Each structure stands twice: as structure tokens, then as C-alpha cells.
Amino acid sequence: MTAIRTQTTHARSGTAAARGAATTFRYVVLIVGALVMVTPFVYMVSTSFKAQAYVLTFPPQFIPNPATTANYSEALTSQNFLLYFGNSLIVAVTATAFSVLISSMMAFAFARFAFVGKELIFRILLAGLAIPAVMLLIPQFVLAKYWNLLDSLPGLIVFYVAGSLALNTFLLRGFLASIPGELDQAMQVDGASAWSRYWRLALPLARPAIATATIFTFLACWDEFPLALTMINSPERRTLPLAIAAFHGANATQWGLVFAASLIAVIPVIIVFLVFQRHFVQGLTSGAVKG
């Protein structure tokens, strides 16, 4: 009996040691991966506080010495940067609001109503996700010209909304379909209309999925470059990605200035994520990505 107990103890010790080694290995891999991901951003932040003479020093300095905020001051005061920032903010916020609203209505219809061709329409909608956005540039340009939407911020908003509807509808439909149908039936017994069930039941319960769709849509609209480059000609109607590209071209060697402008452009994305992060994680894990 003693020998058996000793063997069992050794086996448990070996299993615990193996688990500990596996856990340590996972942590090491995660730490190394995190460092690889974070290092370029840290260097970008560091370079934005360097004078031009210290940008290309070797070995690279992650702690700028001396540090300066001149790059940020120049970025904010030159080449109508704040105007372009405002243009992007208007376009991204408006497009995100309309996209999430319209796609939530579509998702509610797909999840709760039965109508002829529902599955076919939904599959056609999803098929649009397989088409690369670059292939749509020429058709979008032709439509914008036909509808007199070229060189205008409303034109960008229309196409940004249209381009994000398929993904948002897919995300929201899966979440809304997971909501018990008995809740809908109870509201119908009380005489609630379809709009009331959508506004008072579906939207409050779908907050995690809506947060997920909001973050994805805002990020896509804020960073979009090819369509804006194709449609916008007037300098005063440029969005921030176009401005930074032109800024980079005009100051090709001033990396501190370019990085400072890029970091300023990241601020709204960080704010949106911080506002919606509590619901974002829940939306990813509780059904917002179900088909």
C-alpha cells in the first residue's frame, strides 16, 4: 500500500509540474507576443516626442532625450489639421449612428419575422462580405457621380453606411436571435407593436452587440482611405487619413511630426473603445458573432 501511495504521489507531482511548466510556457509566449505587438507603438510614441535630429539615431532610443512637444504643436496648427479632424469626426460619428440604427432594424426583421425569401436575402447580404472593398471603388464612384455625391462629406457617409450594413446585420442578427421568443410574445399579448418590441425590448437587450458593431463601424469609417481618396477633391473636405497622407508627403523626412499627427488621430478610437469596452467583451462572447 505504501508503495502504491508513493507512486500516486509521484504521479500527481509530475502532473502538477507538467501543468506548471505548460502554464509558464503560455505566459512566456503571451508576454513575448505582447512585446512584439506593443514595441512599434511605443517607438511611435517615443519618436513623436523627438526632434528631427534624434529620430534616426542608432541604436533606437525609446526614451527621448531631450523630449519635445513641438511636433504636436506644429501638427495641430499647420495645414488645417483641426479642420480635417472635424471632418473625420462628423463623417465617422454620423455614419456609425445611421449604420447601427439601420442594421439593427434589419437584424430584428431577420431574427423575428418570417417572410418570403428571408434566408435568400440574408445570404445575398452576407455574400457582399466576400467582395474586397477595392473592387467596389469604381462602381461607387460611378454611383456617387450619378447621385451628385462626389466631393462631399454626405457622399462619404452614404457609402460608409452602405458598406458596413452587411457585417453589422450579421453581428446583430445572431444576438437578437438568441433572445427568448417568449419575451416578444408577452409584449404582443400586451398589444405592443413591432416598433415597440424593437425599441423597448430588442435594443436594450442587444447593448453588447450594439457596442461591438459601434466599435467596428467607427474604426472602419475613421480609418477609411481609398474611397475618400477617390471621392474627395477639395482640400477643405479632406478627412484625417487623407490629411495625414498629404502631411506625410509634404514632410517626408519629418517622422516625429507624422507620428505626432497619427497619435492625435488615434485618440477618438481609444475613447470609443473605452466607452464601449464593458459591453464589447460581452458582445463577442455571448452571441454577437453567431450566424
Rank of each mutant, 00 (worst) to 15 (best):
I138D: 06
I157T: 08
S88A: 11
L56M: 13
L136R: 06
A114E: 15
Y54N: 15
N148P: 07
G128W: 09
A133Y: 12
Q61F: 10
A95K: 05
N65S: 14
A133H: 06
Q79K: 14
A51D: 13
G128S: 06
E74T: 15
A114V: 13
S88W: 10
L129Y: 06
P60Q: 01
I102A: 05
F108Q: 03
G155I: 09
V100R: 02
A133K: 12
N80T: 13
P132S: 02
G155H: 02
V142P: 08
A51M: 14
G155D: 04
S73G: 11
F113L: 14
F141S: 02
I131P: 06
L120D: 09
N65K: 12
N148K: 08
E119D: 15
R123V: 11
S48V: 13
S78V: 12
S78Y: 09
K118R: 12
M105F: 11
L150W: 05
F98H: 07
N87P: 11
F108L: 08
V55Q: 01
A130D: 06
S78C: 10
F62L: 13
Y72S: 00
A95W: 07
F58R: 08
F141Y: 11
L136A: 09
I138V: 15
A144G: 04
V134H: 11
A67F: 11
F159R: 01
L153M: 02
F108P: 06
G155P: 01
A107N: 05
S48P: 07
I157Y: 00
A114I: 14
Y72G: 09
L101P: 04
K118F: 10
M106C: 12
L83S: 09
V100P: 10
E74H: 12
A75F: 10
L137T: 05
L76Q: 01
L82Y: 13
A162R: 00
Y160P: 04
A114R: 15
Q52H: 14
V134E: 12
L143K: 02
F141Q: 04
K50H: 05
F108S: 02
K145N: 12
V158W: 04
T68E: 04
A53L: 14
N148V: 15
N71A: 02
S88Y: 06
K50F: 07
L149H: 00
A67D: 08
V116L: 15
A144W: 01
P60D: 03
F85E: 01
T68R: 00
V116M: 14
N148I: 15
G86H: 05
I138A: 08
G86Y: 04
L150E: 07
T94E: 03
A70D: 13
I102F: 04
Q140S: 13
N148W: 12
L82D: 08
I131R: 03
A75S: 02
F81H: 06
P132H: 02
L76G: 06
Q79D: 14
S104Q: 02
P64V: 10
N87M: 04
S104I: 08
A107P: 01
T57K: 11
Y72Q: 04
F110S: 07
A67K: 03
A144I: 11
F85K: 03
L153D: 01
F159K: 05
G86R: 05
S99E: 07
T69A: 15
L153P: 02
W147V: 12
K118T: 13
L149N: 00
S152Q: 04
S103G: 08
W147Y: 14
L136I: 07
Y84H: 15
S152L: 05
